[in-house]
Design a protein around this nucleic acid. Structure first.
Lengths: 226, 226
DNA sequence: ACAAAAGTGTTGTTTCTACACCCATGT
DNA sequence: ACATGGGTGTAGAAACAACACTTTTGT
């Protein structure tokens, strides 16, 4: 399928992997998708979905594949980008394994996850206070949260966490959960509406209280890259 | 020196490389360090310094080594960080080669560069208008400039381009060269001084005109990561 | 009627931008 | 004296932060 690499003299023998930090909003909290490993090393420990890149497979394809086979996520990621490559020598006891870490955003409704592949469990966990993680995955997660917070503020990645139509209070919850802080309702509303990236639609009656206006993303999407 | 990787079933056979985008200021212009390749593919074409990661070598060590052996740079980089990993399948005709690209800042005075290793030339070139580059190095360079512009504004990376003491007009030139736009002298001066990251020292008489105040970086360095 | 959540404006502070002249030195 | 580059202040505009009450619905 491709020519085999002409590796020179003493290039390192490395394994190339991808790991995926998949975020979603559940119960007003920023959550991350974790799998419970079924194999050594770190069997029965929670870890990020991930694995080795296969021949003829692009990096982002490998990330998608791992997400789909290690868990049963029902929806497509709304956003997927590589954000850092972890290659420190001792990071994996099996040898020199370099992992290109990816950040994914899953839309609301991707709640049903099941284990698949070599995993014996899959579940959403609080992103800010996760369980103990295998390998250097805590470090990877922390860096992913940092990147997500950056992206939130200046590319409007928050919309990708919600269904197609949503209310402003729902959007505010996304900002608050990712930023881990409360925001003022009036200022938030002013700022978001003045950006002109939202268009209203019909109304909606939630369980209790006054019904909220529904919005959707405007035509002029601008999810700026880096 | 290390245990050989336990590579599973059909993991891809990949070569792992690093490339270095080394920036410096020369003649009031943002310049990038390029080498003229001595080997196929792309012999006699300008390229970023780079090469394969060796066993037992961390990624950033490999980046430093390539910088030191392919060119004779006299000074240590002031800043070195990985910024993106390029792994597209067709990017290198020799096979599947994944490159972790690094951004380096060399301080003023690193002007003398000579070819070394497998290269037949090494020289500084305009970063905004470089010559034709080998492989996907134009793409790597563009992304590096984008990252540098980001870092400039909110981590004060500009100081790393200058000698230990410098004048405000010199610093402004750095900002203008990286951002590729003119800045207002008064506003620039107000903003920088109000940050409180500069402390004055003695004076200096340049060739002509009124002598400028010299500054150095204050004690509270904050070169925020990511 | 009451509980619950949505919605709405103003004011003061800070930050950003635009803009033109005088100052200190070398020749 | 003059050429060269360094240095300075102000005013309007825009963005941001703090703050409390009214409205609409379901029960």
């Amino acid at each position: 399928m491709e020519s085999s690499p002409v590796l020179p003299k003493q290039a390192a023998q490395v394994g190339l992997a991808v790991d995926v930090v998949a975020f979603a909003m559940h119960a007003g909290e920023l959550q991350v998708l974790l799998v419970k490993r079924g194999e050594l090393p770190h069997a029965k420990v929670w870890a990020l979905p991930g694995g080795f890149v296969q021949s003829g497979e692009e990096l982002h394809e490998a990330a998608l594949r791992e997400l789909r086979t290690e868990t049963t996520v029902t929806l497509e990621p709304r956003h997927l980008e590589q954000f850092y490559t972890f290659g420190e020598i001792g990071r994996d006891p099996r040898g020199r394994i370099v992992s290109v870490a990816h950040l994914a955003v899953l839309p609301h409704g991707a709640a049903k996850v099941e284990a698949g592949g070599h995993t014996v469990g899959a579940a959403w966990h609080s992103a800010h206070t996760p369980p103990p993680l295998a390998f250097d995955h805590q470090q990877i997660l922390s860096r992913a949260i940092g990147r997500l917070q950056l992206r939130l503020e200046y590319a409007n990645l928050a919309l990708e966490f919600l269904p197609e139509t949503f209310t402003l209070p729902e959007l505010q919850v996304v900002y608050e959960a990712i930023g881990n802080r409360k925001l003022d309702k009036r200022n938030f509303r002013k700022r978001l509406l003045s950006l002109g990236i939202l268009t209203p639609s019909g109304e909606r009656r939630s369980g209790v209280g006054r019904p909220a206006q529904l919005y959707r993303k405007a035509k002029n999407v601008r999810v700026a890259a880096l």
